[in-house]
Simulated assay, not measured.
Amino acid sequence: MHPPDPRFDASRRVPSDFDVGRWQALEQTSPDSPPWKLLPQSVKRSSHDRPWTGLVFWHQVGPEGDLYVPPTASHSILVRRAQPTQLLQRQGSVIESLRWQPGQAVVVPAGLPSFWRSAQPRDNLHIDLSPAWLERVAHTQVSLQSCFGRDDPLLAGFAQLLLASLDSNTSLDSQFGQHIAEAIALHLMKHYVGARASSRTQAGLSRRQMQRVEEALRADLAAHWTVERLAQLVDLSPFHFSRAFQASFGAAPHAWLRQQRMEAAAHAVRGTRLSFEEIAHQTGHRSASHFSQAFRQHWGMTPTAYRRAG
């Protein structure tokens, strides 16, 4: 019988070779990007070019070893796909070590930095879910709990379903993604949600405030929306609005608006015959060329290629 590997000892506050300086830098990072954008070298395949609102599915591959991940704008659900591996994790201030088995789920709430030490190569299925979906199904503010590894056949089943859709190139319409995102959010609400925040500072925007801001932004995506202008809609200072918006939507206002513009643009490119100049105008881009560049940077392909793929 082999002695335990001290590199995976969770009884320590931090591992002996843990890069404290690097971790402290992560803690100061604003959650602005989705996980798949933070780890592009690990993305084997991804649904990021599909118009699935609030949901991105991707297959992560990579070598064993350490991984430091900044806080992200999305809730991350990971399901182990390959052989078991010893896994040391840190989410926020909590450290756990376990034998991560195929089919088991790990959940990292939006806004938390994370550290991963894997003894085996990475072969994991990721579901990145916008926090806005939890608010929609809960009709209030909720706090998602960390999960360091759990048998969850339903989350594993969702991951396999999305993988099958990706591999077979089916279920390309936005309605499919929306229904899956809502079903996952309902499941998380029942099994992974902690105590509700008790104050406006903790909880962010009220349900009515969220609805007012969201309706205003969606009604005029092309407008020049500043934080000051958005804050006026709900009678908050720009400073408190930014913090409340981040807590409610899981992303900074400009990042959330950019995501909505790109999703609307993807729908228009694939679902209409509008010119790219018209779509650019509708989604707040100054020209067709600027729109094409932003679209490619966000979705990984040009509007022309995206339209042809549909």
Rank of each mutant, 00 (worst) to 15 (best):
L161C: 08
H290L: 02
R196K: 12
L125V: 04
R308K: 10
H126Y: 07
D151Q: 08
E64L: 11
S16P: 00
H75R: 09
R45E: 14
F249P: 07
Q282S: 01
S93C: 00
L78D: 03
A231G: 05
H48W: 13
A255W: 08
S118A: 15
P121C: 09
L55V: 13
W52Y: 14
S287G: 03
P31T: 15
A159C: 13
S198L: 12
E277P: 00
D128P: 04
D167I: 01
E214N: 04
Y306F: 03
W23G: 10
L55D: 12
D235G: 02
Q83W: 09
E27V: 08
D151A: 12
G310T: 01
G250I: 15
A185D: 07
S118M: 14
G271V: 01
I184K: 05
F115I: 09
D9R: 02
L188C: 08
Q89R: 15
A288C: 01
A181L: 06
V108M: 12
R243T: 14
N124C: 12
Q141F: 02
T302F: 03
R307G: 05
H126W: 12
A132R: 06
H59I: 13
W299C: 03
F8R: 07
K190T: 06
S168D: 13
G284T: 04
W116H: 15
A216R: 06
W36N: 14
Q175V: 08
V107R: 10
S206M: 01
N124M: 15
D235N: 06
G62F: 12
M262K: 05
L87S: 10
D128Y: 08
P70E: 15
L205M: 05
R136P: 00
M1Y: 02
A138H: 01
L78A: 13
S143K: 10
A280Y: 00
D220P: 01
A73N: 14
R50W: 10
S171K: 13
D167H: 08
P113V: 11
T272E: 00
L274A: 00
A231P: 01
S287I: 03
H2Y: 04
A110W: 14
A110D: 08
S46C: 14
A185V: 07
S174V: 10
G92V: 07
R308T: 03
R150E: 12
R273Q: 00
H290D: 06
E263M: 09
F295Q: 04
Q211S: 07
L162P: 08
A138T: 01
A309K: 09
L78I: 15
L112F: 13
H290Y: 00
F295R: 04
P238R: 11
A203D: 04
P131D: 05
L112K: 09
